[in-house]
Simulated assay, not measured.
Amino acid sequence: MKPLLVLLAAATLLPGCKGDEPAPEPVRPVLSTLVEPQMQSQLGRFAGTIQARFESTLGFRVSGRIARRWVDVGAQVKPGDTLATLDPTDQQNQLRAAEGDLARVQAQWINAQANARRQQQLYDRGVGAQAQLDVAQTDLKTTGASLEQARSAVSQARDQLGYTTLKADHGAVVTAWRAEAGQTVSAGQEVVTLARPDVKEAVIDLPIPVAEQLTPSLVFTVASQLEPAISTTATLRELEPQADATTRTRRARLSLASTPQAFHLGTAISVTLSSAIAPRTELPATALLERDGKTQVWVVDPQHKTVSTREVTLVERSERRVVLGAGVQPGERVVTAGVNSLKPGQQVKFDEDAR
């Protein structure tokens, strides 16, 4: 009987020993993302336009009433093309008056020449007085000077008449008219603006704090607002030293690395500013594990599907995002949700395509 009781007791103890073994940790599904380091720091996105690098505003060199505008805004003109004309009546009258003065002085010049020759001949024969010869020669010189002056007056009057026609001095596109037909303009007043379409640039207005951060290493990405896929890069060419008194912005002009065909003059663009920085990683704030005075994240072992903690360096922090300076490597997978319920070495299940 005793051996039988011992066997029964042993049989009852065996199941109890098996139940004392710890149950394996369950495979926990997690959300995760791949580490993709940032090499650029975004300073903002600003609206701007495509403009010609070279623009000129032309005006008449004489005063008068605009008789006709020969081209409209948007027209392409060649060197020498007529843009506008003034009523030339006043200039034509001045030219006729100058030509009349020239004819009168020319007649005086011919008479002075004949008188000087006659007095010289009389003096050479000994029947003429030296005083009369001197008067004749002086009169000839005076009339010669008056002749040159009259010729200059005629040339100037012709120029003034020519100035009543405003012509393009280079190939360009008419971008603006500042005076209308029938309007009286003064000499030098702005009448029309021409832009050379062969060299274009991006123009944006930046807030003063952003403008003060501009450096030669900045990278500008210029994209069309209507077609964002059409884009190019640009570099800073000029930054106006003085801010606009109304908008408190400073105008920046950017030289384009290339000029897409869709970048016509006046095209609305979106300009993104970024600068080169030390590699850093941006993650959701939920990926951060702060425990025992340490800042950590859970890194997934892709081969064994397990997790382990990794201490990281925190650079920036907001309500939704954190920026890490060191601690994780590109291509590693980091848990982004449920970090407080994981244990080192625990197996996890995650979506391979999670970002």
Results as ranks from 00 to 15, higher is better:
182 G>R: 04
94 Q>M: 01
169 D>S: 15
190 E>V: 03
125 R>M: 05
191 V>N: 09
159 D>I: 06
158 R>Y: 03
83 L>A: 12
151 R>P: 06
175 T>N: 07
124 D>M: 14
122 L>Y: 12
149 Q>P: 08
183 Q>V: 05
139 D>Q: 14
146 S>M: 13
188 G>R: 10
145 A>I: 11
191 V>Q: 04
123 Y>P: 09
178 R>S: 05
170 H>K: 13
123 Y>W: 15
154 V>N: 01
135 V>I: 10
177 W>C: 06
177 W>D: 10
173 V>M: 11
126 G>S: 02
158 R>S: 04
181 A>G: 01
100 G>K: 14
133 L>I: 03
91 Q>A: 14
79 P>Y: 13
106 Q>W: 04
186 S>F: 08
131 A>G: 03
193 T>P: 04
192 V>G: 02
193 T>I: 03
111 N>C: 02
179 A>E: 07
157 A>I: 05
188 G>A: 12
91 Q>I: 03
182 G>N: 07
174 V>C: 12
174 V>N: 13
124 D>I: 13
125 R>E: 12
140 L>Y: 03
182 G>Q: 01
107 A>G: 12
179 A>K: 15
133 L>T: 05
87 D>E: 15
97 A>H: 07
80 G>R: 01
180 E>F: 00
91 Q>F: 06
85 T>H: 05
180 E>G: 03
126 G>M: 01
147 L>E: 10
88 P>L: 09
100 G>D: 15
99 E>L: 11
83 L>E: 09
160 Q>W: 12
139 D>V: 09
123 Y>M: 14
128 G>Y: 07
87 D>M: 07
134 D>C: 00
109 W>C: 01
159 D>T: 12
112 A>F: 03
123 Y>N: 14
169 D>G: 13
86 L>Y: 06
191 V>I: 14
95 L>H: 03
174 V>P: 08
96 R>C: 09
152 S>R: 04
170 H>L: 08
106 Q>S: 10
133 L>D: 10
115 N>I: 14
130 Q>R: 08
172 A>I: 07
95 L>W: 03
131 A>N: 05
102 L>R: 11
110 I>F: 01
189 Q>Y: 08
124 D>K: 15
157 A>R: 08
138 T>F: 10
172 A>C: 09
146 S>V: 00
110 I>N: 03
79 P>D: 13
